[in-house]
Design a protein around this nucleic acid. Sequence first.
RNA 1: CGGGGUGUAGCUCAGCCUGGUAGAGCACCACGUUCGGGACGUGGGGGUCGUAGGUUCAAAUCCUGUCACCCCGACCA
Length: 570
Amino acid sequence: MKTTNLLLGTLREAPADAEVISHQYMLRAGMVRQLARGIYTWLPLGLRVLRKVENIVREEMDRAGAQEMFMPAVIPAELWQETGRWDKYGPDLLRLTDRHDREFCFGPTHEEVITDLVRREIKSYKQLPCNFYQIQTKFRDEIRPRFGIMRGREFLMKDAYSFHLTGDSLQETYELMFQTYSSIFTRLGLYFRAVMADSGNIGGNSSHEFHVLAESGEDCIVFSENGSYAANLERAETMPCTESRPIATQTIDTVDTQNQHSISDVSQFLNIAESQCVKTLIVKGEESLVAMVLRGDHELNHIKAEKLEGVLSPLTFAEEDEIKDSIGCKIGAIGPVGLNIPVYIDHAAGQLADFVCGANKDDKHLIGVNWERDCPLSTTVDIRNVVEGEIAADRSGKLKFARGIEVGHIFQLGDKYSASMKATCLDEQGKSIKLTMGCYGIGVSRIVAAAIEQNHDDKGIIWPATIAPFEVALVPINMHKSQRLRDEVLKLYNELQTAGIDVLLDDRKERPGVMFADMELIGIPYRIVFSEKGLDTGKLEFKARTDSDNSEIELGSVVSFLKKKLENVR
RNA sequence: CGGGGUGUAGCUCAGCCUGGUAGAGCACCACGUUCGGGACGUGGGGGUCGUAGGUUCAAAUCCUGUCACCCCGACCA
């Protein structure tokens, strides 16, 4: 490709509304342009990267024996009604009506469509296990799309669905997909981690996420020192305390705490550590309000909380006046003592003795409170986020935190969809068996953004060679002035193309500085500079995007040199 | 949806407070000089100031509605 034949829409300044680096650079490099909120056009340069990512994903999926297909983006409502997700999925589902007033949605995920297909096509255990995938545009009407391509409403996703007769077979494919995902992200040149995850509203049991580590990541991932434990913060378990609770030394007393509402207010006011206070959060339950009791310095884990019996899902905090009606005080003064609603107590809170809590009377707190003596202690539960430094649930060491961008997610769905959609097939005995399912997603377009978040400097993008839009940039200096230079550059350009190398020749009539800056901004991994001076000596300048200085290379050896550099890309 | 903010040329922004001829830099076009790290000069094209209404002799500017976009909280690849 020559730059004069490429829509090279590089910008010197990033649009003001681009917040994260990947969004800024994708706009500045001319990879994408926004059409509407969370909806983008991929320009030729960006599309080249997207396609390379897509191809790596495709190759590895094929290698793992998955079969590619292509499902419709627009899905009839009936299928979604069959699984109940038409009502459950909520406003993220973009709903459409056709000219006959028939309802459809733009598919945000395709469990229903594939299950419908499989229940029609798969009749015998001999056809199992099977794994189908597609690479397709999805639409999720997210509440808040942000960070450009990273969280768009329309995005490109690889989604795969496997079907099995037994759980063991599912487990086998699940593990194969785990390996496949690891190969994919390795080939993409990304620094990533697989972590245990919550399965969210896709449903199912076992689930892992693949995260690209980057400061701007929206997720917090948690891992132990030796790495054997790794989980999303949403999912990371805390351990029940094994030591026995300290014995009570204080007597319970009521203190005046006027205008002290938050845990930090109260702990400062009473000069007591936050960890010696107890906070009581009130959420909506199925029948009444429900209390969540945590140590003052801990945070409630919403995912864990909404899975508890009697708690409304999605987790919703009680309104101020509901609390007033039910408990009789304001939010800043609630405590577990004498509460007349169901109470869930976190493991760590259950370990406290002589603690401080709200008195369920405005402007009053209790001090010297002890479980059992002053307040019944039910079985404690895990309802908080783990904190950095505590011991991992598998006892493999202290936990560390990192930020991650979720680029892949694999689930064992079990029979969630096959049951409601009656997807069965016959086993060896001719008996009808309900199918067991797995599903495996990769955010293809998100990977492009994640790769930039992880690989950039102040000059622009630094693409891993496997997904760079071009592998080599040829930058001739003053080509328009020298026929000899032009001939030599074109000769090499053709040779590189013949050798199957993705080469971009900057044939614009620009000053060198402009060309250098653009090639660096768009992140081409290797650059070769042509000049009259170089031709005289038979040597060209070579610089990798990551090099700080130029090196020399013989004109005649460029092709073999680059081929060697790019060896492991292919 | 709640809270905050912004809409003026393709991009970055000034002008608005205090109403009176719509601006700058970059980008774009032409010519010339430059030419190994985002050059310079001269000339040029491009904006119903998001949109609708109101106040006024007069609105980018003041008022009201509305829409879009961005940021902060609950969703997810």
